[in-house]
Amino acid sequence: MSVGPPTTPADLAALVEEIWGSLVDVATEPLVPVTDVLDTVPLTDPWSGQVAIDGEWHGVVRVDVAPPLAEALAARMLGDELSGEPGVADLEDAVGELANVIGGNVKSLVPGDGVLSLPAAGRPLPTARGALVCRTDHRWAGHRLSVTVLADVQEETR
């Protein structure tokens, strides 16, 4: 059984908002928390990123991003380096790095030292199975972002 939970939904939402704000210009378009239950059903065909934390606490941090939002995220992160539309590698990189930064910050909240895995990303990315610690849902420019923290994740689903 893991020690935990590492964070509350409110803590996680604040963390996600801070990280999103550092990656994307939120001055003109804020990241909005989603509370309507109809808006928190699992995303359809999202881009997903995931990192595992292994140590005294074992768990997974996963982000699921609506495709238009993943494209906007990659474009904002790459800036002038991007010519044309972001490709699959750009989208995997952007969503994976979003998971990596959120995961690194969640790791700082869990007991013990632990090890953060390299991020995995894809569309689809197999869903990890474990105990739900918390989840937060947001909307940016009309498109959804969902962040989930799971504990006691089955090894083969990481």
Partner: peptide
């Protein structure tokens, strides 16, 4: 950085 997007963010 192994992430191209993060290298660009660092440079920016």
């Amino acid at each position: 950085d192994d992430s191209r997007v993060m290298r660009q963010i660092v440079i920016r």
